[in-house]
């Protein structure tokens, strides 16, 4: 993996100079700033941003991630013909995508908080959780993007698969949870729901964020069970581990395929 750093250096430069990463940053910058101007406290802004972050960050990460890898395909072939091992190359490319995406998100959301002077009480820790969740979701969905791009030779298929993965995680999964809840409501569901939530990075991010706010009080008994779990060190550790695993596992599977792949 000795070449990872070298590849990363140039890929970062390439991605950061790209126009779309600027647009991505500006979108978050404007959105956050406008939310502040429309009279939000720090905490309210975080709460309003939450929905957008949970949808947009995974979508943009997975779409741009797949497109980027397809787009770079010929150059990857050229690099593979150099004395470079595939693991280095793959990780370098991943870093070259995930780091600018995560950074652009963090800057876009974080800067307005700085110049609106934190917006007052409570925003700090909530902002921290929002930033961390967004960054981890970026890493996870960029990893998934790379997996998709490695699995599907055909760009159209890969693009479709990327959107599908996003749709499953962002929307369909919650539909399944709702079906589980409505059909098994006679049984104690808190623990199974906890497990189900842990398995989907977007849901995990959403619930973890919700519990940072007063709004958690609206969540009744179920909320209390979740609150207690995520409030404990074990719960926090487990949530973090699962979110990180959502980056590591797809990346490793993708890497395995990448190492075996014919170009």
């Amino acid at each position: 993996m000795k070449s990872t750093g070298k590849i990363l250096r140039y890929q970062l430069r390439d991605v950061i100079r790209g126009r779309w990463i600027l647009v991505y940053t500006l979108v978050f910058l404007l959105m956050t700033d406008v939310l502040f101007r429309f009279g939000g406290s720090g905490e309210r802004v975080v709460l309003s941003l939450m929905n957008v972050v949970l949808l947009l960050v995974p979508l943009v990460s997975i779409i741009f991630g797949t497109m980027y890898l397809y787009h770079a395909r010929e150059f990857i072939v050229l690099l593979l013909a150099q004395p470079v091992d595939r693991t280095s190359l793959f990780l370098g490319l991943y870093g070259g995508m995930a780091i600018p995406l995560a950074g652009s998100y963090a800057v876009g959301v974080g800067l307005p908080f700085l110049w609106h002077a934190g917006g007052g009480g409570g925003g700090g820790s909530a902002l921290g959780v929002l930033l961390l969740t967004g960054v981890l979701l970026t890493c996870a969905f960029t990893a998934l993007a790379f997996l998709v791009a490695v699995l599907f030779e055909d760009r159209a298929k890969g693009f479709g698969a990327a959107v599908l993965v996003w749709l499953l995680a962002a929307v369909v999964y919650d539909g399944v949870i709702l079906i589980v809840v409505t059909s098994l409501w006679r049984y104690p569901l808190e623990r199974p729901l906890l497990v189900l939530t842990m398995l989907n990075p977007i849901d995990l991010g959403r619930v973890f964020l919700l519990l940072q706010f007063d709004i958690a009080a609206l969540m009744g008994y179920t909320g209390a069970v979740f609150s207690r779990f995520f409030g404990s060190a074990v719960g926090k550790g487990l949530a973090l581990t699962v979110l990180v695993a959502w980056s590591v596992v797809p990346l490793l599977v993708g890497l395995r395929r990448f190492r075996m792949k014919d170009f």
Binding site: M50, V171, T182, E190, T197, M219
Partner: peptide
């Protein structure tokens, strides 16, 4: 839904629910 199946509250602010 939440009134009838209280655990469904865990889907609060989900895009699916919207």
């Amino acid at each position: 839904l939440v009134e009838q199946y209280p655990p469904a509250i865990i889907l609060m602010r989900s895009a699916f629910v919207d």
